Computed example of a mutant assay.
Amino acid sequence: MTATSGTAASSAPATTRTATPTRQRRHVGPEHGSTSPARTIIVTGILVVVALYFLVPVYWVFVAATKTTEDLFATNGFWFAPTFNLWSNIAQVFTYDGGIFVRWFANSVLYAGVGGLIATYFAAAGGYALAKYSFRGRELVFGLILGGVLVPGTATALPLFLLFSQLGLANTYASVLIPSLVSPFGLFLCRIYATATVPDSIVEAARIDGAGELRIFHQLGLRALTPALVTVFLFQLVGIWNNYFLPLVMLADQSLYPITLGLNNWRAQVDRLPEFYELTTGGVLVSVVPLAIAMIVLQRYWRGGLTAGAVKE
């Protein structure tokens, strides 16, 4: 009896010691969690649908740009025709009417490139000032700027046209370029980002070292705001490049048209001259290329900004 009891007593703690880690291991699994196959399939499916939503129109434009007008209506819209006519269509786009498309392309580069850069700089300066300087009425100014985000561009196009007409600037480059220099959303984003990424201690240290406010902004503020600046620039670039209503209201001279207005002018003539289908589809394909290049080149700055605060020392 004594030996049996001793054996049982000695084995009981062993059982307890071995069972406790097992329970702990079973508890650790759900705590850390794991991605279930069903969740992975659902997320992947959603991402595939979203990717198709954005890529299918671009694919259709590319396929349509490779066809003649007859093939465009006689063949499947999502597959190539027996005759590959892409290079001929693009050549017509750049040579038609004395190369007017090249002028439209240059105008769009001017409006979107210059307008996007200056608007980004203004947004960074305004956002940095609202984030780092305390002055009376700061929140009121910020609230008025946020109100500008809620106003659609189509609502301000006609008042701007009347204003620029009185100033004698209607039907000029300035009538499209000047309204593009303001980005309320960009200023809002830059203020939020400056508050989070530009420490007050660094600004104060730079002031103690004798740096002026403009130098602090250009050497410290702009570097810290780089991911936000890329975001603002891309939003402005795409918005100005695709802007149609403002140039339609402001411009009457065809030589001042951006790509959007020029392509719509070609599209309006397809009922009278069916060959304008080839010009329109080819021009649309060419107009997408600069935006795709800008997105590919600048996306690395997004990744760098998103991971900048991921590692803490």
Rank of each mutant, 00 (worst) to 15 (best):
M1F: 09
M1S: 15
T4Q: 05
A12V: 03
T18H: 13
T20S: 12
T20M: 14
T20C: 07
T20L: 14
R23D: 11
R25Q: 13
H32D: 11
R39T: 12
T40R: 13
I41A: 15
I41S: 13
I46N: 07
I46P: 05
L47I: 10
L47Y: 10
L55N: 09
V58P: 03
Y59P: 04
W60S: 07
E70T: 13
A74M: 12
T75M: 09
G77R: 10
F78E: 04
W79R: 12
A81P: 15
T83W: 03
L86M: 10
L86Q: 08
A91Q: 15
Q92G: 07
W104D: 00
W104Q: 00
G115L: 01
T120G: 03
T120D: 05
A131F: 03
F135M: 10
G137A: 02
E139Q: 14
L140R: 13
F142Y: 14
G143F: 14
V149Y: 07
G153Q: 11
A155Y: 13
A155S: 13
A157D: 10
P159Q: 12
L160E: 09
L160K: 08
L160A: 12
F161M: 13
F164A: 01
L167A: 11
L169I: 04
T172I: 06
A174P: 03
S175R: 05
V176G: 01
I178M: 05
P184T: 05
C190S: 02
R191K: 15
I192S: 13
A196K: 03
V198D: 06
D209L: 12
G210M: 04
L214C: 04
L214N: 06
R215W: 15
H218Q: 02
Q219N: 09
L222T: 10
R223Q: 05
A224S: 14
A228C: 08
F233L: 14
L237R: 00
V238H: 03
G239R: 05
G239E: 02
Y244W: 11
L246D: 05
L261S: 00
L261E: 00
L263R: 01
A268M: 03
A268R: 00
R272Y: 14
R272V: 14
E275N: 09
E275W: 04
Y277N: 06
L285H: 00
V286C: 07
S287C: 04
S287P: 03
P290Y: 06
P290F: 07
I293W: 12
I293N: 06
G304T: 04
G309T: 10
A310G: 08
K312E: 14
